[in-house]
């Protein structure tokens, strides 16, 4: 059995005095498509950052591909598309090919990009159907096309885990459907996906597992049991309770 991809055990993280994530335990198994949902400010991005080692937990442990996240060093296995990735694409003159080639950097270190790397880049652009845009600047592309370039970067790096933080904000509906169909295909090919998405419908359609968060974990399990549970209402309702709690303390 392939090892657990992400393993969070009783993780708590606070920004100063503000607790963003409290006592969260969850696992992501190889081949999972996990949707991470919750209201705004519920700690979804923080939880994803904890999984990837961008934050160090105050309490609890995080393991990535079996290793303590702080010691995990094979960066090529994880592809990450941050919430604001496309902002940068607009500000800097970088071509689609240059962006996708960055996926090879964890492999080559200080060495040169060789023919095999270029072939991997070309394949990745082919997979997400942006090969014809290879030499265009990212800033000239639509939001959906830019997101495809970032996904291609992860594919080029041979990532086993794809972590996406609200990838379709500002992307039109048609491109969004095409984008999620692409994620389905990648998941069918065995890539593990963790997706933060504000549109619950997308998550229940696409993901096979759901984690519903509002500082604490309200649900973690398969999508069917999530739909049937009251986790969503509880999680969204909890925002009020948290505020009330602050007034009392």
């Amino acid at each position: 059995m392939p090892p657990t991809v992400v393993d969070l055990d009783d993780v708590t993280f606070a920004y100063g005095d503000t607790v963003a994530v409290r006592d969260v335990s969850l696992t992501v198994e190889s081949g999972d498509f996990l949707g991470l949902v919750g209201p705004n400010g519920s700690g979804k991005t923080t939880l994803l950052h904890l999984m990837l080692g961008l934050h160090t937990p105050d309490e609890g442990t995080v393991r990535l591909f079996g290793a303590p996240v702080g010691e995990f060093d094979d960066g090529s296995r994880v592809g990450y598309v941050s919430q604001r990735a496309t902002d940068r694409g607009g500000a800097m003159p970088v071509t689609v090919r240059e962006c996708v080639t960055m996926g090879r950097f964890a492999h080559v270190g200080h060495g040169r990009i060789d023919a095999a790397d270029r072939a991997a880049v070309a394949d990745a652009m082919e997979t997400v159907a942006i090969a014809d845009l290879a030499d265009r600047l990212l800033s000239e592309l639509s939001g959906g096309q830019q997101q495809r370039a970032f996904i291609a970067r992860a594919i080029a790096s041979d990532a086993d885990l794809l972590a996406l933080d609200e990838p379709t904000v500002g992307v039109d509906a048609e491109s969004r459907d095409a984008f999620y169909a692409l994620l389905d295909r990648l998941n069918d090919d065995g890539i593990t996906i963790v997706l933060i998405e504000h549109d619950i419908g997308v998550v229940t359609d696409r993901a096979d597992r759901v984690a519903c968060l509002n500082t604490e974990l309200f649900h973690h399990g398969d999508t069917e049991s999530f739909v049937e549970s009251d986790a969503l209402a509880d999680a969204y309702g909890a925002t009020g309770q948290v505020v009330e709690h602050h007034h009392h303390s």
């Binding site: 080692g53 961008l54 960066g75």
Partner: peptide, 12 residues
């Protein structure tokens, strides 16, 4: 320069 967070995740 392009994507600092992704570079961190790639363990640069």
């Amino acid at each position: 320069t392009f994507d600092e967070q992704a570079a961190r995740v790639a363990r640069l």
